[in-house]
Design a protein around this nucleic acid. Structure first.
Lengths: 138, 138
DNA sequence: CTCAATTTGGTACTTTAGTATGACCCTAAG
DNA sequence: CTTAGGGTCATACTAAAGTACCAAATTGAG
């Protein structure tokens, strides 16, 4: 919202400035008015492009951001979340154990807890749930 | 590319039209020039916004579009692809069999073939590969 | 310190997943 | 007609995943 206010203020200033320029050019010559209008058109075209580019980036980030609030709400611990990420990378329990330097048994415990917390029967279902809840990246 | 040519043509026509308008308003009064400039600014601002919105939609679709060429290149058949999609939804072989009205054995065969074609050891790894290759939606 | 939650790990078990192999039917291409 | 590829299914097997239960060390908040 702050961004919008700032942008509108900037635009207002720009318009006023252009009015001042137009007054001078009005007196000076005929062709320069056309030039000013073309300039205004181009400038505001690029302003429009710039504004929407900002918007796009924000939206893209939103869809790829992780909803940590949901992670906490589900009671998923740090270690459990690490395991979840490893699962999403397609690793087996054994491989995950090697990556995190713990035994396969430990991973199995974490996975079991994750399945309960994500209300899933299988790790693939857990993956889908996690994606729906935006707690892992697509 | 056709779109870009069309848009540039339209913009050229708009600019020429505005030049004509500006000539008349130049003669008529003083305040109308400022109005025309403001109008041009607003119009081109919205044109800029519209153009980028189009762009955004295209980009979004690209990232969510399925690369059927890769599917064919990997030799994945229709039925196998259906199974792949079901896997991505987190279903078990048994459930997939029920959804596609075939036995679990058939699904196992399809999954095995998929794992070979996707160079994966597990269904979760196959999922990751499929996402990387853009042959399923994230 | 005490308590609760986290993290770790084990055993024993059941279930699901995946492999290997063979077989049958169907269809489209040669 | 023959052949290749796709789809179906089964059996027997191994591997991985998941459950249930227990237990110990660690850590952080009150």
């Amino acid at each position: 919202m702050k961004k919008i206010i700032f942008v509108f203020s900037a635009l207002s200033i720009c318009i006023l400035a252009l009015f001042q320029i137009s007054k001078y050019s009005f007196i000076s010559s005929y062709t320069s008015i056309e030039f000013i209008i073309a300039l205004v058109a181009v400038i505001f075209l690029f302003i429009g492009l710039y504004l929407n580019r900002k918007n796009k980036n924000v939206k893209k980030l939103q869809s790829e951001e992780i909803d940590w609030k949901t992670v906490k709400k589900l009671g998923i611990s740090n270690r459990e979340y690490e395991v979840l990420v490893e699962i999403s990378k397609g690793y087996s329990n054994k491989e995950i154990g090697e990556h995190l330097f713990v035994s396969e048994s430990t991973i199995k415990t974490h996975v079991s807890n994750l399945l309960v917390k994500l209300e899933a029967k299988r790790r693939t279902e857990a993956l889908r749930r996690a994606k729906e809840l935006h707690i892992i990246v697509g």
